[in-house]
């Protein structure tokens, strides 16, 4: 891990000093233990800030998109011949590169506008699982050594195997190594365990319908519509979100529980063939809504019905903007 960090800083410095990129998006140490925050480095001397460890949870593709689009907006009043491009270097693990591929497929920016610093990933630590492991105590310090993480709280120190606190999306991750790389940092990471990818979904599918409905309503009742899931999601980049549109008003602003359900259903549905299971929405949710259970279902259907995995292949067109004459249609009602 330290080697990767060192190499990452060197490569970032090279890119910045050589003016190959205007900004590098990476992770830096956060202000609290167990935390890293996204950082934007424009000066080659600042690269020492960059870190790469098991606390790097956010999907940075969101910021590549935002930076490029902000820059384009700022260029709107510049004469066309004098317009410049902003090249973004981005520290990307497997899921981040999948999001970048989705952006490229959706023509959000050109391949020449990003430089991908690919890093191998062994999964990130879920803060919710940590909180459970220490019974919600405040963590004063944490260190990862090998396969264990030791957590220092006011009540003492606790050692937990890393495998127990990795995010659910990481444990069953299929693409933990970057799929789109300009500069590869370090060796490819060992594979995770993608065989159990849909176990959760399969188990949920086999529950009786009323239990599924109960679970859905219970989870959605937690949602306070803070829109953190939308704001962190790299696939949610619309300038005007349906959730805030007033003409037409898709989502009522009242306290009715169905309004929350509608918001979540529609946000989840916008992820058909676009959710890369990076787990960012689950990680940022302040209420702990089990979003993954529903998002993963779409992933499963996309794969089983149309052999499509979101962002896995740049040449494979997006799920809902392609079709085949022989797509399955056993769900079509026939009155005869």
């Amino acid at each position: 891990m330290e080697n990767i960090e060192k190499q990452l800083r060197e490569e970032a410095k090279k890119l910045l000093a050589g003016k190959k990129v205007d900004v590098v998006v990476g992770y830096e140490q956060g202000t609290l233990p167990l935390q890293t925050t996204p950082c934007f480095i424009e000066n080659p001397d600042d690269v020492e800030k960059l870190v790469w460890n098991s606390y790097c949870s956010q999907n940075l593709a969101k910021f590549a998109h935002d930076i490029i689009h902000q820059h384009r907006e700022s260029q709107a009043r510049v004469k066309p011949e004098e317009r410049t491009k902003k090249i973004v270097g981005i520290v990307a693990r497997g899921c981040t590169t999948r999001s970048l591929i989705i952006h490229l497929q959706e023509r959000q920016y050109g391949r020449d506008e990003i430089v991908v610093l690919g890093v191998p990933c062994t999964g990130y630590i879920s803060k919710k699982k940590i909180a459970i492991a220490v019974d919600g105590d405040e963590i004063l310090e944490s260190t990862v050594t090998g396969d264990t993480i030791s957590l220092k709280t006011a009540g003492g120190e606790k050692k937990v195997p890393l495998g127990n606190v990795l995010s659910d999306s990481c444990i069953t991750c299929r693409f933990n190594n970057p799929l789109l790389v300009d500069v590869m940092i370090g060796e490819a990471a060992p594979a995770m365990n993608p065989d159990g990818e849909y176990d959760d979904v399969n188990a949920f599918e086999n529950l009786p319908i009323e239990e599924r409905w109960q679970y859905f309503t219970k989870e959605m009742a937690k949602c306070i519509r803070c829109f953190a899931c939308r704001n962190t999601c790299p696939s949610c980049y619309c300038k005007i979100c349906f959730a805030e549109q007033s003409q037409p008003t898709w989502i009522g602003v009242g306290v009715d529980e169905t309004d929350v359900q509608m918001f979540q259903m529609m946000r989840i549905f916008h992820m058909v063939g676009r959710c890369v299971d990076c787990g960012s929405c689950v990680e940022v949710c302040p209420m702990g809504v089990d979003l993954r259970k529903f998002l993963k279902k779409l992933d499963k259907d996309g794969f089983e019905l149309f052999s499509h995995r979101a962002g896995a292949d740049i040449d494979n067109p997006p799920l809902l903007s392609s079709f085949l004459m022989e797509d399955k249609e056993d769900f079509i009602y026939d009155p005869e």
Partner: peptide, 23 residues
Amino acid sequence: TGNLSARRKFNMVKNFLSYIGVE
């Protein structure tokens, strides 16, 4: 081809609705 892309969409809609527990 409008109905062909609709077919994919509706297949997902139908499965998703029954997944969350709507008849």
